[in-house]
Design a protein around this nucleic acid. Structure first.
Lengths: 196, 196
DNA sequence: GCCAAATAGTCCGAATAGGACGGTCCGAAC
DNA sequence: GTTCGGACCGTCCTATTCGGACTATTTGGC
């Protein structure tokens, strides 16, 4: 009953049920794969333990299906809805965490042959183009859902990130191949406030 | 001796030692914090076990310091250098992994009060500005190191990502506050190749 | 009825997280 | 030359998390 440890995954579950109505863990798993997995990955097995935990905590209520597989279907309790809203009302300064294997290789590019860098860059360009294509489709789908406004906003951010990266990797692929060393492009600068 | 399981962290260690010369684990830890931690985070305790492991595998050689603390100092063996170069020569299509707590909140923005969204966006704008300031300093520092060319490239990618996000969050902060619903900005679209 | 495919859920060893904690060295103060 | 504080350096430990292998159940085609 008491609101105990609530993790990001807890809110994923609460949020999805708030959005989609009473759901089975399996449905949640599928819903996660459709979007959230792109910016908050976690193993699907967690959904099963998390729904159980949230039920114990009184934030979800369970209703067994009568027919067929008799799956557990969870709905939000009032406490659950409140917990979700409370969470949403606290902003976070937590900044994005990035993990890129390709960055790692590029970082040590000094020890690679020029061709290696070019190959890496080409592979990244291709991968990013695929990714952009799929995000574009997602945007297309969201465009006709005036609710889902904020999902759209997230998708757009994702799109912008992928776009920016694509541009950069293309440039990386071209550099070395170019006719001459290129002059550093001017880049927006902002007032500094110290930090490192 | 046999080249066994080499993880990304292995290459971080090999790469840093290749760049900086023989190093102690503590020095590596500090070096990681200066840049790599931003796109390949891992607990510092791993450096200690990893250097040990790489020594066993014959990719590093250890030389105890004679004086003072008698710290372990590791240098690259030929095998180590080869392993690094082999790794660098294989491109990766692995695409970036993103993890953002703020995205999660925004995603479920439907259940938040408009003010909550605005607050979140403002917090993100502030955090990103700080981050951009520190990246800008890093770029400044790298500008005068013609070696470090590829580190610079990574830093620029990071900068572009943060810039793009800043723009988007600013827009999010403004939306709702704006005089009217704004027309969707035209956005670059690319040929689709399917994927989801 | 039987089989294949899709659906649904469980389990568990391995890897990671990341902070708490314990020593060690050095320079400054007295 | 002793003491002390702070930076330096490294180890350890527990709680998650990872993520895939595995099992079971249902449905639908024939």
């Amino acid at each position: 009953m008491s609101s105990a440890r609530l993790t990001p995954v807890s809110y994923v579950v609460l949020g999805l049920i708030a959005r989609d109505g009473p759901s089975t863990p399996y449905e949640l798993k599928a819903a996660v794969g459709l979007g959230i997995a792109h910016f908050w990955p976690f193993p699907h097995s967690q959904i099963y333990s998390e729904t159980e935990y949230l039920k114990e905590a009184g934030l979800l209520a369970e209703e067994r299906e009568n027919r067929g597989r008799r799956r557990r279907r969870f709905r939000l309790t009032d406490a659950g809805r409140q917990a979700l809203q409370a969470w949403l009302s606290e902003p976070t300064s937590d900044t994005l965490h990035l993990r890129s294997y390709a960055f790692l290789k590029l970082y040590f590019g000094h020890f690679a042959r020029p061709d290696d860098i070019a190959g890496l860059a080409r592979a990244q360009v291709a991968a990013l183009q695929d990714q952009l294509a799929s995000v574009t489709q997602m945007l297309e789908r969201l465009k006709v859902r005036p609710d889902r406004k904020w999902q759209m906003a997230v998708a757009e951010m994702y799109f912008q990130i992928a776009s920016a990266l694509l541009t950069q990797w293309k440039q990386t692929a071209a550099s070395g191949r170019g006719p001459a060393r290129r002059i550093a492009r001017p880049v927006a600068r902002r007032k500094s406030k110290a930090r490192a």
